[in-house]
């Protein structure tokens, strides 16, 4: 055996660190996907931290908390902004809410009925889709917004003849409730 196997009871270190240059670029590029000014608006006044255990979770936190993070090596800080998987940044629901405030691209707007179906975990067909940004291409991940422009989750758009004809539910804010139920 070349390497010793670690003991199952061995304590796993919680490594808190700032993103590397490359990780930062991946995150910024994902934010720019939803609009050029999104990174600047979303990150202004905040720091990004990465918690590396078995995964690389990304947190968005008020800028003046860095000394406390270094001292306490916390369980979590601020909002969970997303997760880095290889060279891909997956944005969380809390991250999506923030991004939606400044997004100008890749948005699909639902009517009231469609919004309710979507937060109950359903995908959507034509009639419930009220409007969309013209830059959306087939299979794009999109921000799914209500009739009031409020963030409901992420979807995958199906486009035919320049029209968004359906949205597959990737994740929606109903998850907050469903995860509570799972806990009980």
């Amino acid at each position: 055996m070349l390497f010793m196997q670690s003991s199952r009871s061995q304590k796993i270190d919680r490594i808190w660190r700032r993103p590397t240059k490359k990780e930062g670029e991946i995150i910024i590029s994902k934010l720019e996907y939803f609009g050029e000014s999104v990174p600047e608006n979303v990150l202004k006044g905040y720091d990004l931290y990465i918690l590396e255990i078995t995964r690389r979770e990304v947190f968005l936190v008020k800028r003046d908390l860095s000394s406390l993070i270094e001292i306490f090596k916390p369980y979590a800080v601020g909002i969970t902004f997303g997760e880095l998987k290889g060279n891909v940044f997956m944005i969380s629901l809390a991250g999506g809410y923030l991004i939606s405030k400044y997004a100008t691209k890749k948005r699909v707007f639902l009517d009231r009925e469609g919004s309710i179906k979507f937060i109950y975990g359903e995908g959507l067909e034509g009639p419930d889709i009220e409007d969309w940004d013209e830059d959306i291409e087939d299979n794009d991940v999109v921000l799914v917004l209500s009739e009031n422009g409020e963030f409901l989750g992420f979807g995958r758009a199906k486009v035919k003849n320049l029209r968004v004809v359906s949205v597959e539910n990737v994740i929606d804010i109903g998850w907050y409730l469903r995860s509570e139920m799972d806990e009980e």
Binding site: K62, P74, L93
Partner: peptide, 12 residues
């Protein structure tokens, strides 16, 4: 904290 969008809490 995520649902409410609060960004100034360090949870330990």
């Amino acid at each position: 904290v995520n649902r409410l969008g609060v960004k100034n809490i360090v949870m330990i």
